[in-house]
Each structure stands twice: as structure tokens, then as C-alpha cells.
Amino acid sequence: MERTTLSRPMALALAFMAVIWVSPFGWLLSNAFDTAATGRLIWPQRFGIDNFTGAIGGDAGRMFLNSLLIAAGTATISVVVGAAAAYPLSRLRMPGKNALLWTLVLLRMLPSVGVLVPLYFAAQRSGLLNQFGVMLALSCLNLPFTLLLLKNFFDTVPIELEEAAYVDGASLWQIVTGIVLPMSRAGLAVVWFFSFTGAWNEFLLPLIFSRVEAGFPMSVGLYGAFGRMGAIDYGFLAAFSIIYAAPAIGVYFLLRRNMNTGFAGVGVKG
């Protein structure tokens, strides 16, 4: 066994790096809990949680709900549409299936900025410059990845189980809801939460799709608040940032063990 122990200078260097990496978070926390925050790095002068209560009420609360709507909507559309297509894709022998899968791999690399103008144009013409339009556009961009990942999960469900159920007289619907979906529960959850965090963090599409302030999600709201000239309310922004970042970080630690499947999803087992 090659068991490396870190030399002292190496350990110091690592510790130094870790401190540098987290120091912006220290700043963020100290400002969020300081009701008289000025953006400087000091121990909170007046300790309190007023910033947080400010950052969940009123406009900020509405932005939270908008973000939640967009993220949950995108994730649900992606998983439902993706799973409905991934099962046939996994089980059917179709002509040109490999070409289709490779197309999906290529489409997965398609950057949203590349189709930004047509997306905007189409949404404008069909009156979808709102949260629902953002959801549809994000699901669209998300689907190639979702489809590949779910197909890989369904591929791992043993076909013998389905055969046994069929012999026992189960219908297709019963086979899918009774065997396939429960057995790929972990996969479905990973895909749902991946899509959720992706849409929760999304900035560009809501930026060009939101016409009214009532439709802003947290990303656009936070950008608007600190991009504005004049006095910056650091305490409020820090608390707002923490609330906005919490779901994404929470989801990761919830799914930590299943996370490596995200890497598996980049390839195709054709």
C-alpha cells in the first residue's frame, strides 16, 4: 500500500489555500449577521438576524417564490418528458438509434448563448416572455442531458424482472410504475435535483425573459441590487445571497453519494 503522509510544508500550503478559498464566505457571514454592515471585514458590530428577516419578506420573498417556481417547474418537466422518452429509447430496437444518441450527446454541448436570439424571438412571438417561457426554454436545453442520463439508468434495470411481471399478467403501465420507476428512483432523484439546481442558478434566460419586476427570480434580483449605483446595503445583500445559495448547497450534500452519476451521463453506451 502506498500511504502518503503530507510533509509539513505541503500541509501548510494546503491549509493556506483552504483559508484563501473560504475567506470570502467568512466575510459573507460576518456581514449577513451584522445589522450595521458596511462591507468591511470586521467582527459584527451589532449582531442580529434583521438582515435575514428583511431578505425573506416583500420583494425578496416574491423573488424566492419565482425562483422556486422556475426551478421546480423545469425539473418536473425535464424528468416527466425525459422519462417518458427514455424508457422506449432504452427498450426499443429502432433503426438509427445510435445516430440519435450521438445527436443528443452533441446537443448536450449546445451553449444557451448560441440559440439565445431565436429563443427570445420565439418567446416574444408566442407571448411567453414570462416564467413559463423560462421553464420551457430551460427544459428544452436540459432535455438532451436528462434523456441520456435517464436512458442509462433504465438500461441498468434487469429485463428479466419485467419479463416475470409480464408472465404474471402485468400490463405495460403496471410494469413501468411497479418495477422500472421504483428501481430507478435514485436516478430520477438525481436528474430532478440536477435540473432543479441548474434552473435555480440560471441567470441569462430570466434576465432577457423577465419583462416586469414581479417576475424576477433571485438571480436577476440580486444582480439588479448590487449592480445599481449608489449606497450598497451589504447586510441585506449578504443575507439574501446566503438564502439564495442555500438550496443549491443543501441539494449537493443531500446527494453527495449519488453525484458521480453526473459524470457517467456524459458518455453513451450505445
Binding site: V81, A84, Y87, P88, V117, A122, S139
Partner: peptide, 23 residues
Amino acid sequence: LLSAAMLPAIALVGALLYFTGWA
């Protein structure tokens, strides 16, 4: 039934290809 289940996904992926063509 299975083909019908694939329709929404085909529509969305088709839209993505269509938008690329539009660009």
C-alpha cells in the same frame, strides 16, 4: 403507446434543432 410517450421529448429536441437552424 410508447411512440406517443416519446412525442413531447421529440417536440422539445426538435425545437432545439429548429432554433439552431433559426440562428
